[in-house]
């Protein structure tokens, strides 16, 4: 159930919690707000469920990060261009 109490110095209401949820999940919230938002999630089942969904969603996006690697022919093309530019390094660090 959503908690409708207004935001005060100690508590965050649901609207504020949802507004800052992504920052919380991204670890981009300051320490003080993080503690307050975490406290809210512990007592609010609606926001807790929402946080769980967003966390799973972000994990799925991250997992889908294409295992796509730079094609070998592009790597060769870049190296050749660099060599023409005077680069004398090696492709294998």
């Amino acid at each position: 159930m959503m908690r409708d109490h207004a935001m005060d110095t100690d508590h965050i209401d649901c609207a504020s919690a949802m507004e800052r949820l992504f920052e919380f999940l991204d670890g981009e919230l300051g320490p003080e707000l993080e503690v307050r938002l975490r406290a809210h999630l512990e007592v609010c089942s609606h926001c807790f469920g929402q946080a769980g969904f967003e966390r799973r969603f972000l994990a799925a996006v991250q997992a889908a990060r294409e295992a796509e690697r730079c094609p070998d022919r592009l790597r060769s093309r870049v190296l050749e261009a660099l060599q023409r530019e005077g680069w004398t390094g090696s492709d294998t660090p």
């Binding site: 990060r65 294409e66 796509e68 730079c70 094609p71 680069w87 004398t88 390094g89 294998t92």
Partner: peptide, 25 residues
Amino acid sequence: AATDAHAAFSAVALAAIDDVYRFAR
């Protein structure tokens, strides 16, 4: 100095080519 810089470019910048490629895509 140049040789070191080129080696560093290989080890640091070229090592990130998969990420740059993905970002460019």
